[in-house]
Design a protein around this nucleic acid. Structure first.
Lengths: 176, 176
DNA sequence: CTGTATCCCAGCGGATACTG
DNA sequence: CAGTATCCGCTGGGATACAG
């Protein structure tokens, strides 16, 4: 099967085997096609990632977030503002009875969806062998969390069984 | 239940519910306990991550890696050297018959284990909605890849069912 | 082809001081 | 408590030129 790009069927996508090289990689260059780079634009900094970590660990108020991450207030403020602007967090006012209005930072759906990335990072970080640290566990059974790579149909997938598909701008959208 | 740290059973680990705050978070501070930060020390830069991406896409030679990532040779060289030093990649000489010796960069086990992080990042990057891009698919069935958060026992886990466990230096190691 | 060496600038992130 | 303002050093990464 010729799975190299080209006039094979619709021109909206092409599948190229990763296991067997793929010379056409160069044709993809285009502009900013890479989703990893898109993702890194938002959480590509250390401060952004560990702030998100702290939010997952239950932090909500500016003070806690800054102290627990070890970031300076200046950096924490700047980064939190950016994370809110980017839609990962939401700044929400709330009021304890008898106290003055405070603000808390809570996850948006987009922010919640980042969780697997954090888990994958923690899992890999453990692999580095440096002792100590915090790990996440399943509350139900107490065993540590990790991520499993699988396809949308539920098959568990290993690295050699993967291929890259070029998704053109239009996006098929049709339930092919 | 007092699940805060302290003399509860062995002192090698403590479980703190994430869903219900956890006041003792501050007690953890210690030194460099965070695995995410360990991980980010090695792949926390844009160049490191997209070089790894390119390796997963099948790139092996310096020239290809530099061009396809869009990095300058200077940056690519520096980052590749670091990735080799950190044990994610291996620089291997090889020789096409009749040609002079060349070098290629190939994944080590540690580098291979980073794959789930990349997949999680791509999956989240797609969520950002910017059209176009490349996605990874399962060669067997053609559906796109993603990651699933699950515990070591195989249960699929959602965010509210997670807790954080402090792993002390000694590491129990005993098959408790 | 596979890098090295320089120059340069923007951004991250620490420190410190100050405001509502 | 929740930031803002300023200063400043470090590194990431682009550009360009050169080397084995």
């Amino acid at each position: 099967m010729t799975q190299a790009a080209g006039p094979a069927g619709s021109d909206t996508d092409a599948v190229i085997s990763l296991t067997g090289r793929f010379a056409d990689r160069d044709a993809w260059q285009a502009e900013g096609w890479c989703r990893i780079e898109h993702a890194l634009e938002l959480i590509g900094t250390r401060s952004a990632m560990i702030l998100m970590r702290e939010i997952y660990y239950g932090g909500r108020r500016f003070d806690d977030l800054a102290r627990r991450t070890g970031l300076t207030e200046a950096v924490a403020a700047k980064r939190l503002k950016q994370l809110v602007a980017d839609g990962l967090l939401q700044r929400r006012p709330y009021q304890d009875p008898g106290k003055r209005t405070r603000y808390e930072y809570v996850l948006t759906d987009l922010g919640r969806d980042l969780f697997p990335v954090l888990v994958a990072l923690i899992q890999w970080g453990e692999r580095l062998g440096r002792p100590g640290g915090v790990e996440l566990v399943h509350v139900g059974c107490g065993s540590p969390l990790g991520v499993v790579v699988s396809c949308a149909k539920g098959h568990e997938v290993a690295l050699p069984d993967t291929a890259a598909r070029l998704v053109a701008d239009g996006d098929g959208a049709s339930a092919s």
